[in-house]
Design a protein around this nucleic acid. Structure first.
Ligand SMILES: [Mn+2]
Ligand SMILES: [Mn+2]
Ligand SMILES: [Mn+2]
Ligand SMILES: [Mn+2]
Lengths: 247, 247
DNA sequence: CTAAAAAGTTAGCCATATCTAATTCTGCGT
DNA sequence: ACGCAGAATTAGATATGGCTAACTTTTTAG
């Protein structure tokens, strides 16, 4: 009987993320901090979601998503990441702002619009932070790679993903040029979780361990020419025609 | 103390429209039908808006917007029309669908995004139906022109505006090519609110009086070169024209 | 093994926004 | 001038989602 409101969508998405994509059990307290609401609010919502058969829940026992709940969560994640990419590529919204904007837009995306967005972006697979975009059917590519902080001195790599949980930190990472597609080399790594000296596009930067662990990298594909270079915003701000005529 | 929620925004926008852009008094009943809610809902909302000093209201006396209320209404109208134009021009959303989409998106547009949208569209002055877009400061160009139904036989004109109140009718008008920028000629007008025979881009159509009054036209600027031709979507959305291909 | 601490739940409120049914105004027609 | 029909308001209820304070269960540490 109850309907899928914006609050319901945000809860399901939060639980999906906290359970590391839908598997593990999630505690009431974690949901509360993730969504910045009180624990009683979570208990009450979680009981409602149970009656809607969107998650499994026993008192004092944490929650897991049902297939139906996961389906809705993935749909919202898809909306979120499509909007992020669109805003970044086509409207030139700064990377550290796209998450906040998408947080509201994700609840406002009709099927028609989703289709148009998808086509306009050429069936994209990843959002501008490097997170995979769930397919319409709910398939989700795995996030491959390891944390920058794990790399040894001398390693070359390409940034695959940057966490967007903290806009401040993301802003700083962006200012270093440490974003998806960037080629990097670890010039030095101090021991005991020490900072890394990283070469990024000509410049050298020292990056603390905490920050370095927000960045996921994958091995550089030999020293060939830039293949995986994710393009920045393609916004020639008032160019009439969106390039490719879709077939 | 109460805040400007989505409901508040929709009420203010409705009142603004019903009062013909903010002047005349509006009755509770009219607001109720416009928003498709019950009269008691309106009474209660209107009392709240009064405490927020967004409108003037006395029991049994109808309402008018205060300057603060009008300011918010215009901001939402601006959002609405910017989104409409953006969706139409850049994403290829069919004209008869943009209003519905914008109805939700209008509540989700940060200042940053509004700025980007505006720039991307080149400081537009009119939405795709031909309605003026309020400026950031609240200035609004007047709607000039007369209803198509008023024209006499033999008149040439250019469509300035098409009402979007009814998606079905709009869809039909679009199929006739009767949209902003179109050059037309009234070939014949039957008396007593009779239908018009109109030449639109090569083709001849018969348009009933009711429909004809949804279309506002202005005089054709001599028979010079097409100046006012409002461009269609910059997106060749997989077909030439936004021929709505509903599922 | 047991007693705090931490986590979670229940109880009771509040705010927002709607509705139906009952009541009260207002303004019009006779 | 008055009564009545229609418009508007009041009364009372429902649904959603959030909060604090108080209580209960589980977990952890000594
Ligand atoms: Mn993201
Ligand atoms: Mn959200
Ligand atoms: Mn419109
Ligand atoms: Mn709206």
């Amino acid at each position: 009987m109850p309907s899928v409101t914006q609050a319901v969508e945000d809860y399901l998405k939060a639980i999906w993320r906290l359970s590391h994509e839908g598997g593990e059990r999630v505690s009431v307290g974690d949901i509360a901090s993730e969504l910045k609401v009180s624990a009683p609010s979570v208990t009450s919502m979680v009981r409602k979601l149970k009656t809607m058969r969107l998650l499994n829940y026993e008192r004092y026992g944490g929650v897991t998503l049902t297939p139906r709940g996961r389906k809705i969560a993935l749909e919202i994640v898809r909306h979120h990441r499509l909007w992020e990419l669109y805003l970044y590529m086509r409207l030139g919204v700064p990377l550290e702002l796209v998450d906040g904007e998408a947080e509201r837009l994700e609840h406002v995306l009709s099927d028609d619009m989703e289709e148009l967005l998808t086509r306009n972006l050429g069936d994209p697979t990843h959002d501008p932070h490097g997170d995979p975009i769930p397919s319409k059917t709910g398939a989700l590519a795995p996030v491959e790679g390891i944390a920058l902080g794990q790399l040894e001195t001398g390693t070359h790599a390409i940034v695959a993903r940057v966490s967007d949980r903290n806009p401040e930190k993301l802003r700083y990472l962006v200012s270093l040029g440490l974003l998806p597609g960037a080629r990097i080399e670890v010039e030095e790594k101090a021991p005991f979780r020490g900072p890394l000296t990283v070469r990024i596009g000509g410049r050298r930067h020292v990056v603390g361990a905490d920050l370095a662990n927000l960045v996921i990298v994958r091995g550089a594909p030999a020293a060939s020419r830039s293949k995986g270079a994710r393009l920045g915003p393609g916004v020639p701000p008032r160019s009439g025609k969106p390039r490719g005529k879709r077939r």
